[in-house]
Each structure stands twice: as C-alpha cells, then as structure tokens.
Design a protein around this nucleic acid. Structure first.
Lengths: 301, 301
DNA sequence: CAATTTAATCAAATTTACCTATCGAAAAAT
DNA sequence: ATTTTTCGATAGGTAAATTTGATTAAATTG
C-alpha cells in the first residue's frame, strides 16, 4: 500500500526538481526521500522521475500521477481541517477570490458586518479575473470565489446571492434629463466605453444589450470602472455600470446621471463558487446569507 | 502525519462496527487495528468511534471525517488505477449507469460498434433513474452515467453527444392521416399518457409542451415506454416518445403513427456525466464520439 | 454465576524508517 | 588534463514503529 508520505515526497521533488532540496523541504535526509521515491515507483510500476545524476525531470505519466497526488493531498488536508476546525465555524482562515468588478463595491458593504458577527474570522481576499479564480478554486488554492454569472464553471458549485441590472452612465450635459429608462437600441453604441477584454463585465454588458463584441468604442477599453467613470465625467462617452457600483461611482460625481438599462435581465448574477466536496460549505452559505442581506440593505436602486 | 492505513482501518471499523471483524477484513490482528485507530483519533484530536466493550458506534464528527476518508480512498484508488491502467485506454472494466428511457434505445445502437473497435473493453451497464445515477457518480460508485438534460447535476461535468425532440404517438384510427407536425396546443392533453413520476422523460415531455404536471391523464402513469406504446395500440390514448426510441417502438407496430412535436427544442439533450477530476476522461470522450456517430447513423427522423 | 465476547493493554519480536557515510558518475573549475 | 564539486544511489547501523500473541477487564448471555 502506498503512503501519504511517499506522495508528499514526490510532490516535493516535483516542485524542486532536486532530491536534496526536496529532502530539506521535507526535513528528512536525501537518502530517506530517495528510497521512498524509488519504493513508490516500484509499487506503482512506473517511472515518475527521469533522473540521471545531473538532472531530474518528470515523465509524462509522472505528471498525470503527480496531479492526482496533489488532489489526494488536498483531500487529506481538508480531512485534517475537518477534524480540527471542528464544529466551530469561522475559526480558521479562509481565502476568497473576487473579481475586480465586484470586490471594490461588494466588500465595503459586507466586510464590516462580517467583522461584527465573527470577530475571530480571518478572511483573506485576493483579486483576479474570473478564469483565474475558477482555476484556483479547482486546484484548492483558494476556498471560494465570488464571480458574476453566467460564466463557465463546469464541475464547480455555485451559491447565488444577488442579481442586478446595468445602468447607463452619462454626463448630465449629454442626455435629456427626463429619461427614466433606456434600451440598448437607444444607446449610442459607438460612444459606449467598456472594460478591456478579459473582464467578464464587458461580456455581460454586451450580452445585456444583445450585442456581440463588435461595435462599441474600443479605443477606450479601460482597466477599471473608476477610470471609465472619470472618462464619462470628461465627456469622452458613456458606459454601463452594475447596480452595486452605483453608489460609489456615481454619487461622488454630481455631473453624472445613471439610467436603468431596460433590457430583459437580470444582467448578471453574483455567486460564491466552491469545489464539490468542499468541506466548509456551511461557512460559505453563512457568508452567502450575509452578502445577500447587506446588499439588500445597502444597494440603491 | 496520518496514514492511509489508518484511514483504511477506520473505514473497515465503520463498515463492520466491530474491531475484531474489521481487523480480519484488513488481515491484521485486532490489537494492531485497535492501536492504529487510537493513534488516528489522537492525531486528529477527536473521537471517531464511541466504544465500550460491547458496542461500537460512530460519533457525529466521526461520520463527517469518515466520509472524507472515503473520498481520500477513492482518489488514491484512482491514482493507482492511473499508474497501472496507464496508457492503454479501455483495458480496465468501466461501469456506466443509464436511465430507462435511454438505455434500451441507445445501447443496441452503440454497443456493437464499441465491441468492434475495442474488443478488450469490459463495459458494465446498470439502469437507474437520474437522481440515483447522479448520486452514484458523485460517490464514485460508477464511472459515468448517461442522462437526459436538463437535470440537476451540480458539481458534475457533462459531455453532450445528442439532442432530440419528442414525437406524438397515436393510433392510426385516432388521428387525421395528413398531419406532419403537431403543437402542444393541438394535443388532447387529457388523453396524453406518460411515465410515472420520477422518470425525467415525463418532466421533459411536459416541459416541451410548456406544461406543469397537472392535466395529463395520470390514470395510466406507466413504468416503461414499451407499456405506453402497447396502451396506445390499444386505443387508450396517445403519448410522447423521444426520437431515439421511434424505430424500436413504432415500426414494430404498424397501427401507430408518430408525428413530430412542433415546439421549440431540443426537447432533451443526452450526455455522459462524470465527476470533475475523474481520471478516465479520455475514454469517456472517446465513448461520447462513438455514441454521437452511431446515433447519427442509426436514428430515423 | 460461569462462559463468552469484546476492546484495551503489555511485552516481545519483527519490520520499517531514517541517518550518516560513502560511492560513482557527471559536470564545472582550475 | 586534473581536480573539485554536485548529485543521486546505496550500505550498514540504529532508533522507532508496527505487529503479534497473550492477557486483562468489562459487559453480555445462558
């Protein structure tokens, strides 16, 4: 029967591509690690590491086995966590990823409440684009991620806690002041400025307008909503902003107007995603409820 | 560091609820197993088994940890499989579940081809309803399942290989012979006979007609499509049949007519589902392609 | 109350794991 | 061309762990 130790050692070798360094990283002698690897390879009936005395490299089959070994290790780690973090929720650190078009608008609304209810809870936030976060959740690098759906999250589970529409934001001087709603047909697409490719907000905004990525003003593809808003304030064009960002972006700029985009919605749905079999699901659903409640309280319409 | 052996022993105790029997099942002495369990509990800092000298029972936290241990074991088994079954696809037995409204119509069309291409391949088929199969895939009891979508498969991955519409099947005497198409509005819903609850075919058929489960003739909720067809032949009413079943059901009964149901479709999508991280994905996609090709060849329209 | 069953415990034997030291090959330095 | 360094494999000795078999204590059964 193979052992976890063997897998642990093998993963260390993969990381260092060096038996001595791997051994040090594992706090064992090089010889102990060396025999463990040899024994593992014998038991599996295959070669994981191609090694002459100067180079170590991973075989093709080795890569496959090692990636499975990572998964085993992940599951074991979760088992240990299960046993220790035992019962008491929010006693261990949790790392959650969030995309740039949600983080700055959602987190200020919800983090104070979380700190209030669970003062012991250590929450670490990272910010990346959706596809990066999805990979990280799959790998177990992070506990969960907050994304806007629709997005391809095959094999993951989602807990939706909010859905919202887009608002068309323009300069007061450049739109008739009576308008209460606007449809995509009434938008001057050529003047529309959106985030640069890779941000799901752009895809969702275009989808809400039933547009493919073709016509809007791509000279100004921007890196952040804040920049976009500054450009709108500078009368360079207009943009679309999700509801949860309105308060921060618009109401600090009295020159701007936000008008509801009247297209069938919701235009994006916000969800926490986790791996299936993830062990801290209970905490995630508690978070989900807090997120939902705080958004209901603090989002302007 | 905990070991796989400990987890293995613990799972044996869970299964037998008896240290001696568990020890025999593991081919070790009772004392060896006993100390291993004690050590595991010490390392995890919790009690897994509540045991006085006459009874063994699993604690609440124990259940949680043991279910995680099962998952670890599953992943390790897959790792071993990866190493051995290595390289040569279709050399190991594979178990696939299929629902009753697909199996009898799909398998005769595809199994001969599979036997021809991969004569060594041992494929075991089980037949259950969708929700059972989904659970079995999640648990790793079976390698994959063939289902009709839409169906709730959160956390699983799907490979769709076919989509099809329903056909309205009635007795020749009971419908005008010129009809080429029929819409749900033209259907006499009260005479419509469907499978009994629990079969996703019923849900898909009703969804195709934009109906909730309310009006159709539920006196005849049947257990199989073959029975339904016999009842249609007996002039007890009409029914809806998926395309892939037409050849077997209808063209052996010359008294019947099948007419395409003209509602926006496809009315159901057929897919292979697997757990994410499942190791034999390559074989599944090969199967998927065979399924698709054979259906294209052999399905009548 | 004796007989039986069961899990824990103990001591002894066995197996395994690990460390140090060494080797031999290959690469780098001189 | 020679020496030195680097690297992974290997051997031998020792410590640690595991396993076994016997024993114990508690609970159940007849």
């Amino acid at each position: 029967m193979i052992s976890l130790k063997q897998l642990h050692y093998a993963l260390a070798v993969e990381k260092n591509l060096h038996f001595k360094k791997a051994a040090e990283a594992c706090n064992v002698s090089q010889s102990a690690l060396s025999t463990a690897i040899t024994e593992l390879e014998k038991q599996l009936g295959m070669t994981i590491f191609e090694r002459n005395n100067k180079k170590v490299l991973v075989t093709d089959e080795g890569h496959v086995v090692l990636s499975k070994a990572k998964r085993v290790k992940l599951e074991v780690d979760e088992l240990l966590q299960l046993a220790s973090a035992d019962q008491k929720p929010f006693s261990n650190t949790m790392t959650i990823g969030v995309i740039p078009t949600i983080g700055p608008y959602l987190l200020p609304k919800v983090l104070p409440e979380i700190r209030k209810i669970y003062p012991e809870f250590k929450l670490k936030i990272i910010e990346e684009q959706s596809h990066v976060l999805v990979d990280m959740v799959r790998n177990g690098d992070i506990d969960s991620a907050i994304l806007a759906l629709p997005f391809a999250i095959d094999g993951l589970m989602s807990f939706e806690f909010w859905q919202e529409d887009f608002y068309w934001v323009s300069h007061k001087d450049e739109c008739s002041s009576q308008l209460q709603e606007i449809t995509s047909e009434e938008l001057e697409i050529e003047k529309l400025m959106l985030l640069k490719d890779g941000h799901c907000l752009k895809d969702h905004a275009l989808a809400a307008c039933s547009l493919q990525n073709k016509k809007q003003n791509s000279d100004f593809d921007s890196a952040s909503l804040h920049t976009l808003i500054q450009m709108v304030a500078g009368k360079l064009g207009s943009t679309l902003v999700p509801q949860m960002a309105l308060d921060q972006l618009i109401y600090t700029e009295s020159e701007l107007r936000a008008i509801h985009l009247n297209e069938p919605g919701p235009h994006r749905r916000i969800a926490l995603i986790i791996r299936p079999n993830y062990v801290r699901t209970k905490e995630i659903t508690l978070l989900k409820d807090i997120f939902h409640d705080e958004l209901m309280k603090k989002c302007i319409v």
